[in-house]
Design a protein around this nucleic acid. Structure first.
Lengths: 337, 337
DNA sequence: TTGAAAGCGCTAACAA
DNA sequence: TTGTTAGCGCTTTCAA
């Protein structure tokens, strides 16, 4: 690879001078500048970021750890993060835990070795002591760690409440929700706790089905829903993530249950999966763009000034009313930017 | 950050010795090894990959340039690539062109500065001379550049043929296809050329609608399809990518056109979008896993031995027969791994 | 305005 | 078996 030495030699100047031209720093005579620029062009020179970063004691990298890349909520988040980070001249080191997050410190090691300047961890679980050993600032999404760790999440409690109230308004009496653990009070699971609570307060029967894995695909969910609907034929309301909601719609159709007349379905995330089916699925929309940009901003600030007060941020969600609960209605869409 | 010097000092040895322990190379006495390992653990030391890479004249990074992250075909590919690259201890430098690929050399510059050891470019267009200036090996997906550049693509010609023949077998007489340019004979567009050709040979009317952008979302496609179906009410067959196919299904339902009885729809890509709608959409499935692993293997081989003969690889596609063309049938699924 | 030289954290060749 | 030293490509003092 062509290096600064080569450029300097061709331009007949020293390495230091060539560097000054490259970085547009210090005094350079116009002639010298031109000579060096010409040499750079002639040799098709690109500065070695690796070497620069070593000297500057930085890596220009931010770690992003997600449980999956393909679920649309995550691919959209990744897309926004990629843009945000690029705008600030950061590279993204993307790590896919494939749902093996349960207290897995390996990803943090990878990030450490690569001297990332910060990381955004999605629903990532570590022992408390392991968090203390992380040598770079982090922002935790959807999982509260402790006051000293910045935290961003959708207001999932509001999400659970919106979903519950909507189904109640729609007249449901026997509802089922499918989701992760209903015990752990993570910010992420709280929607299901709130949902159940709200149903109880309103005297509505609520079955809470705890999925064995977060890694279920469409067909796993379809089987789960089929079984639940057979077991509880009175069910008239359903609450789960968008993928499961699409599976629920499919399962209901198979069983000749009409949606929304006999069964109302509310999804979670507000992804494309809820938009493209017929009827479109009423869903609790998460503001992925705001989550991504907030996480970046908080992280950048903390990188710049490590003494910044850690930040706990809840981001509003929105109920998108669509055909899976409200018949003959133009589907509501996520706010456009 | 703690560095090797610190470890060496704490262990009471020289930096070189500590390095030998770190890399498990050369002769070290058991006592020394243990002392050094203890020091590393005590200081929570991680070697600086940046510094190592500078010395080794490598970056451990592979560039991946895609037109979008969110369309499921790409998020699945990215997911497979991430795994493949990680297995070979490479990091992925992910670049999203946001469909601004038309001869945009900026991404190649970013990759050059970061000294990526190779890159996988999806449907990426450059001037021929710009390809010559790329200082690292590349694999081009879905776009043939020239014999000296490795190339991987699904057999899109077969895909177009499968789609056409299937619609013909289903008895269609007036079909519409929606896609990119029908003029350029890129491997990616050839499916539409082949489709039109096959229709012509069979005396079937085929309208080819050239979309204004590859960046259309569900609602853009829905409007396009609504207009087409109103303009050509005789239409009984539709061919387009999965997202557009889902929109077509939705549009048809809005217009009270029954699928598959009155209108048959064949999608392309075989993504989750085609699975979750009802009826599920018959689609030409691309083997994303094979595309990803092949691209990686070809690239790794070329990195190892730059004189490897460039490789042109076509990967078979598969027709998944589902409810949007064949009534009352269990939907076919992509092969499981 | 430019050149020379030190050093970022690490590895590897050579000496001891 | 271990220590010393040079150098990866670059930036940045300090001198000239």
């Amino acid at each position: 690879m062509v290096k600064l030495d080569d450029v300097a030699r061709l331009a007949g100047v020293s390495k230091g001078t060539a560097s000054r031209v490259l970085n547009n720093r210090g005094y350079i005579s116009p002639q010298t500048r031109q000579k060096v620029k010409q040499a750079m062009k002639a040799l098709n020179y690109f500065p070695n970021e690796n070497a620069r970063n070593l000297l500057r004691q930085r890596s220009g990298m931010i770690g992003v750890v997600v449980p999956t890349i393909t679920y649309p909520y995550y691919s959209e988040i990744i897309s926004h993060l990629e843009r945000c980070l690029k705008e600030h001249d950061y590279k993204m080191l993307l790590c896919n835990t494939a749902f093996n997050a349960g207290n897995n410190i390996d990803y943090v090691h990878t990030l450490s070795k690569n001297r990332v300047e910060g990381a955004i961890l999605f629903n990532y679980q570590l022992e408390n002591k392991d968090y203390d050993a992380i040598p770079f600032p982090i922002v935790s999404i959807d999982r509260f760690v402790k006051d000293s760790v910045s935290f961003v999440a959708s207001n999932h409690e509001q999400g659970g409440l919106l979903a519950a109230n909507h189904l109640i308004e729609c007249g449901c009496r026997h509802v089922i929700q499918v989701g992760g653990s209903f015990q752990e009070l993570t910010p992420w699971n709280i929607r299901h706790v709130k949902f159940r609570e709200t149903m109880r307060e309103n005297g509505i029967e609520c079955i809470s089905y705890e999925q064995a894995s977060d890694d279920h695909d469409f067909h796993d969910y379809r089987e789960i829903v089929l079984q639940l609907l057979r077991q509880y034929p009175d069910t008239d309301g359903f609450f789960c993530n968008d993928l499961c909601a699409a599976a629920a719609l499919n399962a209901a159709t198979s069983l000749s249950i009409r949606v929304p007349e006999q069964l109302k379905i509310v999804g979670y995330d507000g992804t494309i999966l809820s938009e493209i089916v017929t009827p479109a699925i009423t869903s609790i929309w998460q503001d992925v763009q705001k989550i991504a940009t907030s996480a970046c901003e908080i992280l950048f600030q903390r990188i710049e000034d490590p003494d910044t007060t850690p930040c706990n941020m809840l981001i509003g969600v929105k109920l998108l009313r669509r055909g899976s609960t409200v018949p003959a209605r133009t589907p509501e869409m996520p706010p456009k930017r």
